[in-house]
Design a protein around this nucleic acid. Structure first.
Lengths: 245, 245
DNA sequence: CGTGCCCTTGATGTGTTTCAAACTGGGTGG
DNA sequence: CCACCCAGTTTGAAACACATCAAGGGCACG
């Protein structure tokens, strides 16, 4: 199962113009297919950069949507506010992931996006993107795929929340996150979690204590090494067995 | 909270050509805005009809996606298959709702869509729709809104599954469903559920017995009248209080 | 008029939450 | 440099919500 927008994308060789622009780590690979006429134009459009400090919001629910964002570096969470004031994490977003797509329907952002570590995004003016979509049918199709992929990701998350026990949720979460990091050239089996247990739990529909207990359980089973935020996958096969079995 | 694609849409007066085409019950109002140049063209494109018998699939996961669908009459469920063979309902879809959007990313359907009562859909060739999107920027923007709305619906469902107790889930489900029926000109407070307790539970991340118990609890509290599949909302304010409070 | 599916209800079991306490590590200021 | 502080984490015990198991009942359909 995939819980993120990027994990099912086709891996394309990175075009030279992307290399030059510094977008290699993530960036626009989802849209920029080599040898397409629109590549240069799209990169020009996505030239804007914005730096977001740890803990700071990229946007808030209700903000008018004029820009979409692609994560360049760093990690974001998106949150929805419950009526009673509690906040629930709806996803974690790595480099290459798009942010703001849920705001298109109402021209205003539907969730909060907050950086969990110092981060950078490239900004894409939605109206200018629209103009480019008009010119290039391939690009348009690609953008619709990105929107559709986000729907798929959400339904898979619904599947996790509606039908899995805590241990499966945590195992799936770890496999998903490490796979996404791997796709981005990160280490194979070790990671440092930029989010708290509470944020993980909020995303998985669990309390922080339950997340902690599941980590301990997986550690005692010899599947993981966990010390605070450092996680090392010791037995990936066993973890997959737990997640999928 | 809204759990469906249509509940947040703008209510537009129905254009005459739509009336003529028999699309009044649902149909394409989401795309067809009055006095737009593309209206006639779009309706011509959406001229195909398909009848689906109760219990029959409109499409199955893995089927190649060449058509999108808009529910014309009847009610559908969409399901995802777990690795262990269990099937989980990811949504119920009334007239006017689009089906197949989650398949755009991979050109193949990502879920099963099954009619819960005899139903009719209009079929929309995705390639032909693409061509129309190319011609009409307004239509394109509208279609992107529909995709975005589906993302919003999914995140709201994640919020329900991740953060609400059983009673809130059932109350929210009933309010959402009756509101959607009302938007389609149905009765204000009474409904006949075309789906089983098990299907409701599957969608809400609950077991069928729990759904039944919550119905009974709400009945004893004087909020509902429930006999089998017939539900009458007795105290809507109280139901909202339970769902949102 | 029976048969099967669906629904309801009760008794019991279990996984997760809640509450509480102790521990850890990084950062700050004396 | 060390002591302190504090947010985050771990762990245990008890409570609770939901699941599971089991039995009975209603309705539709052949």
């Amino acid at each position: 199962m995939s819980l993120n927008p990027a994990s099912t994308r086709h891996v394309e060789p990175t075009p030279a113009c992307v290399e030059r622009s510094g977008l290699t780590q993530g960036g626009l690979q989802q849209l920029v297919v080599p040898d397409q006429a629109y590549s240069e134009r799209l990169l020009a459009l996505a030239n804007g950069r914005r730096t977001v400090r740890r803990g700071a919001p990229l946007y808030r629910s209700g903000d008018r949507l004029s820009q979409l964002y692609v994560v360049d570096s760093g990690l974001f969470k998106t949150c929805l506010l419950h009526e009673d004031g509690r906040s629930q994490v709806t996803g974690f977003h790595l480099s290459g992931d798009w942010l703001g797509l849920d705001g298109i329907v109402s021209d205003s952002h539907h969730s909060d996006a907050v950086a969990l570590e110092d981060a950078q995004v490239c900004t894409i003016d939605y109206n200018e993107l629209e103009a480019l979509l008009h010119e290039f049918p391939d690009l348009r199709r690609q953008f619709q795929r990105i929107l559709s992929r986000e729907i798929v990701r959400s339904t898979e998350m619904m599947q996790l929340l509606g039908g899995m026990c805590a241990e499966k949720r945590v195992a799936t979460f770890l496999l998903d996150l490490t796979q996404r990091l791997r796709e981005r050239g990160g280490p194979e089996t070790s990671l440092v979690l930029p989010m708290t247990r509470e944020e993980i739990g909020s995303c998985l529909g669990l309390k922080l204590e339950t997340v902690s207990r599941m980590f301990s359980k997986l550690r005692k089973a010899g599947v993981l090494d966990v010390t605070q935020r450092h996680v090392q996958l010791v037995d990936v096969a066993a973890l997959q067995q737990i997640a999928h079995g």
